[in-house]
C-alpha cells in the first residue's frame, strides 16, 4: 500500500512523516511520531483522551486522518508546558489533586487550554459543558473544574 507523505507542524516543530491513507492522527502521533502523551480511551471520539488542537480547534485525534494534518498546526500535550516550566493549568491540576489515575489528564489539559484561550473567564457551567467531551472516571470532575477555575483566575491576574 502506498503511503502518504505529510508535512505539518507539531508543537512548533516542522515535522514530516509517512502514513497509510486510513491511519488516524492518533495512530500517527503514537505509533509513527512517538508522541505517546496523547492517549487512546475509545477510538470513537467519545472519551476525549486523545484530544489535540488543530489550528486552534479542539479535535479528537482518533477521528482525524493523519493525512489531514498536511499544512496544519497541531498542539499536543507535549506542547503545553513552555520553556519556563509547567503551564498554569498543569500546575493547578497538580495543586488541586485534579487527577487520580492520570490517563484522561492530557486530554483535559489540552481541552481546558483551548477553553481559556477562547474564554478567559468561564463560569462553572461553561467549564462543565466545554469539558463534557472528556471522560474522567476517577475524580467526579469536581477538582478538575476547580483547577480550571483557579487557572483562569491566575491567568487573569497575570494579564
Amino acid at each position: 500500500m502506498s503511503k502518504v507523505h505529510v508535512q505539518t507542524t507539531i508543537n512548533g516543530d516542522q515535522v514530516e512523516f509517512l502514513c497509510v491513507p486510513q491511519q488516524t492522527m492518533l495512530e500517527a502521533l503514537r505509533d509513527v511520531l512517538g508522541k505517546l502523551g496523547t492517549k487512546e480511551g475509545c477510538g470513537t471520539g467519545d472519551c476525549g483522551a486523545c484530544t489535540i488542537m488543530l489550528d486552534g480547534r479542539l479535535v479528537c485525534s482518533c477521528l482525524m486522518l493523519a493525512a489531514e494534518a498536511e499544512g496544519q498546526e497541531l498542539t499536543t500535550i507535549e506542547g503545553i508546558a513552555g520553556p519556563d516550566g509547567l503551564h498554569v493549568l498543569q500546575r493547578k491540576f497538580l495543586e488541586h489533586a485534579a487527577l487520580q489515575c492520570g490517563i484522561c489528564t492530557p486530554g483535559f489539559i489540552v481541552a481546558a487550554k483551548a477553553l481559556l484561550d477562547r474564554n478567559p473567564n468561564p463560569d462553572e457551567g461553561a467549564i462543565r459543558y466545554w469539558l463534557a467531551g472528556n471522560l474522567c472516571r476517577c475524580t467526579g470532575y469536581d477538582k478538575i473544574v476547580r483547577a480550571v477555575q483557579d487557572a483562569a483566575k491566575e491567568l487573569a491576574y497575570q494579564a
Binding site: D46, C47, I127, L131
Partner: peptide
C-alpha cells in the same frame, strides 16, 4: 458496547460534590 451508548457521567451531568 461503547462510551456513546454506555452513558457514563460527563462534567456537565454533575454539580460540585
Amino acid at each position: 458496547a461503547g462510551f456513546l451508548d454506555y452513558r457514563m457521567p460527563v462534567a456537565s451531568d454533575l454539580p460540585m460534590i
